[in-house]
Design a protein around this nucleic acid. Structure first.
Length: 422
DNA sequence: TCTGGGGTCCTAGGACCC
DNA sequence: TCTGGGGTCCTAGGACCC
């Protein structure tokens, strides 16, 4: 029987901000999504105020002001770096670990005499080394570990750790878990289940398998079996190679001009190509999309995408920009107030595995790789965007708002926190 | 005025091939 | 005139996750 622990950082982004702002220790803190649009992280004090996850910031602006909530724009350089520190610490507690997301990891704790005690040590160590509070849920399957983790977080009696392995009151516990709280059951399926009269994780786990499979596919069936203690989702230690890379953003204000749109597409194309190189891949295909603001009722809506294949799989910024703009030409229609655009690169393969092609000369390919290496090298040393392509624009009047970003404390020299004596 | 961004997996259906 | 069965690949759409 597997023993799986899910370690999940509490209010991760908000906790990262607090590490560098001890004055905020017991104050409500929220972090906003890109473009300062939605709430994406809330400290416990902010949760207590009734601020919802994913809530548009403008809707609760009043509440934020009234309770003097500390508000931060998201700062991914900081969160990514803090995440790496947490994961490094966790890795010392198990030989088998899966980094599941920026703030979560599954660990295999099988064979330990006392997994719960181990988890408590782990929790203390992460806290001491990084300042980030975490919760640990333990169970015989990933889905049950997820549930354990949620209970560990919400029930103060747990002290941040809960082990569901070998509990004889498991059914009672699952009976108290709302069906929409189960990992893998989203809004649509929850609504359908409620319609059937299914309210709890326990009731879901007792549905006929064929009924679940027909409506929720094999994915839903796995969830059901995992709740019964049958492990269907393995620990994935090696990260799977990526299948696609996306770069997209909402605009800071509506865009109507083709020229601005071309700039933005070039900008995202360059970002996507950069990320692709970072992963050591080349892409065979590109997709470009544009869309208007679907929240504005009565305004003409337009949302389309189109794709193109590269003659030769590539990670060359110039090639990606060129092809991206060619696709944009086909889909851009004047007369709309655009909200967002983006570029997806897919059909990825490892750059190293690629063989030469009749369509490109080996010399061109080598020159492209050398140029990209120089660009990436300069940007790594002197900051992102030290060298850019002219097509990506200079002033970028369409770029997103980001009013309250904290310093990149741990990744940019100029923004290191200072400690003053006395 | 203001509503994120980046991913994965599954299924169905069409094109095409033998 | 009739009109199989099996396979692959691709795309679009839906659902979910953090």
């Amino acid at each position: 029987m597997p023993v799986l622990a899910l370690v999940d950082c509490n209010a991760f982004y908000a906790s990262c901000e607090r590490v560098f702002r001890p004055d905020l220790a017991h104050r409500p803190v929220v972090v906003l999504s890109n473009n300062d649009g939605c709430i994406v992280a809330r400290s416990p004090e902010a949760k207590a105020l009734g601020i919802r996850m994913g809530q548009p910031a403008f809707q609760c602006a009043d509440l934020l002001r009234r309770h003097q909530v500390a508000v931060f724009s998201s700062n991914y350089a900081l969160y990514g770096d803090m995440s790496a520190r947490v994961m490094d610490t966790l890795a010392r507690f198990s030989p088998a670990m899966e980094v599941y997301s920026i703030d979560e990891a599954f660990l295999d704790l099988a064979g330990l005499p006392d997994p719960e005690a181990h988890a408590r040590r782990m929790r203390e160590t992460v806290r001491r080394h990084t300042g980030i509070p975490v919760s640990v849920g333990i169970g015989p399957t990933k889905t049950l570990a997820k549930i354990a983790n949620r209970l560990a977080k919400t029930d103060p009696a747990c002290g941040g750790v809960l082990d569901l392995c070998g509990r004889d009151d498991l059914e009672r516990i699952l009976g108290g878990v709302e069906v929409e709280e189960v990992w893998g059951i989203g809004r649509r399926h929850a609504a359908w289940l409620r319609g059937l009269g299914v309210r709890s994780a326990l009731e879901f786990s007792r549905l006929p398998r064929e009924v679940v499979r027909r409506r929720m596919t094999v994915v839903g069936l796995s969830t059901l079996l995992e709740l019964q203690g049958v492990s269907c989702l393995d620990l994935e230690q090696a990260p799977a190679p990526p299948k696609s890379v996306v770069a997209s953003r909402s605009f800071g204000r509506p865009v109507t001009e083709a020229g601005e749109m071309r700039e933005a597409v070039a900008f995202h194309a360059a970002r996507a190509a950069e990320r692709l190189r970072g992963k050591g891949c080349v892409a065979g295909n590109i997709l470009v999309f544009v869309q208007t603001n679907r929240f504005i009722a009565g305004e003409p809506q337009y949302a389309v995408s189109d794709t193109a294949a590269f003659a030769v799989p590539t990670a060359d910024t110039a090639a990606v920009i060129r092809q991206g703009q060619a696709v944009l030409e086909r889909i851009f229609k004047p007369g709309f107030r655009y909200k967002k655009t983006g570029v997806m690169l897919y059909g990825l393969e490892p750059a190293a595995a690629r063989r030469g092609s009749l369509l490109e000369s080996p010399r061109d390919a080598a020159r492209s790789r050398a140029l990209m290496q120089v660009v990436d090298g300069i940007n790594a040393r002197h900051g992102r965007d030290a060298v850019t392509f002219a097509a990506t624009g200079v002033d970028r009047p369409w770029r997103m708002r980001q009013g309250s970003r904290s310093p990149r404390y741990t990744t940019v020299w100029d923004e290191l926190p200072e400690v003053r004596a006395g």
